[in-house]
């Protein structure tokens, strides 16, 4: 699972490049919390520490959670989300291999439901003018909740490009008008589109090294493209283009790093088709018509629930029993 961590590095690098090193702080914080929680839970469950602490699975949960929430989130949010994911969503269900839900996505869901306000303060990319925070200032906010004098949270953070799109559409603007806003780049949000690209590069590395199966990422992105494309064709002024969906929010992270988590995912070929299509449909519906800024995490959890059923329904016929004789 070390390769999964390696594959996250291009995306993280882009993150640091466009939004400053705050994300490294939350990743470190989440990693420490994850390892500590893992160790405590293993101790409580009387399991050996070494094999489970060194399998990197806790780190993957930590990194995915840190990347899913605003980099400027207060330190205690990172800790609560990670600890909840590892202790409740993973270990109370029986530990590695037995958790029906993705622990990082559970952590995310807990945070967005409990602290919705904090979850909307995303860093503004540093190519937009405004006051980009220095690393020291970012640290000061994460740990002490103090911003530099004369600066406000609204000045240094913003809603996500997806969120902004939704709000502006409600205000009656057309997609084209909104896309003219300075926060948007070529594909989607400035900066964040490059982070998504980084995740895609990492995902291709995972596919090439056969760490993940190709079915889920391909079908997920394909379905998302087709669904978004159909809506966009029907009403381009109201529904944004499919590429925007690909490079916004956590779509790329989900396609290659979240939906491909084997533990909570289906195991059959047909099951993976259904799972990935369902996830894409839910992502789109939640993003476009739902109350949350992104749908990737909830789509993952909702599809996780369906996995036992999907697996049972899609059992392949075994050797010699496929019918039709030869």
């Amino acid at each position: 699972m070390l390769r999964v961590l390696i594959a996250l590095i291009p995306g993280i690098a882009a993150y640091v490049w466009y939004f400053g090193p705050a994300i490294l702080v939350s990743i470190t914080l989440a990693s420490i919390t994850a390892l500590l929680t893992e160790a405590v839970m293993l101790k409580l469950r009387q399991r050996p520490l070494k094999p489970f602490l060194s399998d990197n699975s806790a780190l993957i949960t930590a990194w995915l959670l840190a990347l899913s929430i605003p980099a400027l989130a207060p330190w205690w949010m990172v800790v609560v989300g990670t600890a909840f994911g590892i202790a409740i969503a993973k270990h109370l269900y029986g530990g590695l291999g037995n958790n029906p839900f993705n622990p990082a996505m559970i952590g995310y869901a807990v945070l967005i439901i409990s602290f919705p306000a904090h979850m909307t303060h995303w860093l503004t990319p540093n190519m937009l003018d405004g006051h980009a925070l220095t690393f020291a200032e970012q640290l000061n906010y994460i740990f002490n909740g103090v911003l530099p004098a004369g600066s406000t949270l609204d000045a240094v953070t913003m809603a996500t490009p997806l969120d902004t799109l939704k709000t502006q559409l409600h205000l009656g603007l057309s997609v084209n008008d909104i896309r003219e806003m300075p926060i948007y780049g070529h594909l989607a949000g400035k900066g964040s589109e490059m982070v998504a690209l980084g995740f895609a590069i990492g995902g291709i590395y995972l596919l090439a090294t056969r760490v993940i199966n190709w079915v889920v990422p391909l079908v997920y992105l394909g379905s998302l493209f087709v669904i978004a494309g159909l809506f966009h064709q029907a009403n381009p002024a109201h529904y944004v283009a499919p590429l925007f969906h690909w490079f916004s929010g956590a779509a790329m992270l989900g396609a290659f790093f979240i939906y491909t988590d084997p533990v909570g995912g289906p195991t059959t070929f047909k099951g993976r088709l259904i799972y990935a299509f369902g996830a894409a449909l839910l992502t789109y519906l939640i993003r476009t018509f739902g109350g949350f800024p992104d749908g990737v995490a909830f789509a993952a959890l909702l599809m996780n629930i369906c996995v036992p059923l999907i697996d049972t329904w899609t059992q392949p016929k075994v050797f010699g029993k496929k019918g039709g004789g030869q």
Partner: peptide, 12 residues
């Protein structure tokens, strides 16, 4: 030593 199954389906 055997570790938990993570349903990676290499076996399948």
């Amino acid at each position: 030593p055997a570790l938990p199954c993570i349903r990676c389906t290499r076996c399948a």
